[in-house]
């Protein structure tokens, strides 16, 4: 049983090839990091998996179900949740309204109060989300995706723009998520990647450069050359 299987995914923007024949699969409960330099096609890959983009070629299977041509919202209802690299919330609505929008459509049995209390946000339920601090907004970004009780969650740079303290906090939150949620995460911060992920896929110029456990990827000479060598700048 695979939670997610991506087969020979290829994507062109006009004549520019962003993804070249990308194939990989993720086991249920696995935590997989996708890393690679900027422009490697990571976010495009996420957009194709979540359904906002259609691939030029290739197929996507979610628990063995072909979802390649399924619209984004249907995939979400099947259990694919996501967060965005650039914070994407209902900024003019209260926190409670934000979470309610996620709860009212999902078939989860989560209760608003319990949910918000468990994340320590109950006191701020009436605050307009645009007025929360950036760090809090990044957490809400994650909460919205969790509120729909996804089977697979795509995290697009959850620590983007955060201070070291905030980064540590959100990393802990993600680490402590229940193991029945499969996680696919794009992350530039190597420390976060090595803390969170079971396995890593390295994307380079739209192709998979290497794939394996943390240790395998760490010791791969090609990765050192193209990515980890420059990781100091990325962090």
């Amino acid at each position: 049983m695979k939670a997610l299987e991506v087969r020979s995914l290829t994507k062109y923007y006009g004549e520019f090839q962003v993804l070249k024949n990308v194939s990989f699969s993720v086991e249920p409960g696995e935590r997989r990091a996708i890393i690679g330099p900027n422009g490697a096609g990571k976010t495009t890959l996420f957009n194709i998996i979540s359904g906002t983009l259609k691939p030029t070629l290739g197929k996507i299977f979610f628990f063995h179900r072909d979802v390649t041509y399924m619209s984004a919202y249907r995939r979400s209802r099947l259990g694919i949740g996501r967060t965005f690299q650039i914070t994407n919330l209902f900024f003019n609505l209260s926190l409670m309204d934000n979470i309610n929008l996620a709860l009212q459509i999902s078939n989860s049995s989560l209760n608003l109060e319990e949910f918000l209390r468990s994340w320590g946000f109950w006191e701020k339920r009436r605050t307009r989300v645009g007025n929360l601090s950036y760090g809090e907004q990044r957490q809400v970004e994650l909460l919205l995706a969790l509120a729909q009780s996804p089977k697979l969650i795509l995290l697009d740079e959850p620590t983007a723009g955060m201070s070291p303290v905030e980064t540590e906090a959100i990393t802990r939150i993600i680490t402590e998520l229940p193991r029945d949620i499969t996680i696919l995460i794009i992350e530039h911060d190597m420390e976060v990647v090595f803390t969170l992920a079971d396995s890593i896929t390295v994307l380079h110029y739209g192709q998979i450069l290497c794939e394996g456990t943390k240790e395998q990827v760490k010791s791969d000479p090609r990765v050192k050359e193209v990515y980890l060598g420059t990781a100091g700048e990325e962090v």
């Binding site: 359904g51 619209s71 919202y73 994407n88 209902f90 929008l101």
Partner: peptide, 24 residues
């Protein structure tokens, strides 16, 4: 009502609404 809240959600962020499972 939930329907109306969802419509407001589309104004606020259509892409997020889709990610949450709404047929925007």
């Amino acid at each position: 009502l939930p329907l109306g809240r969802a419509i407001i959600g589309v104004k606020e962020s259509e892409s997020r609404m889709q990610a949450l499972g709404y047929n925007t």
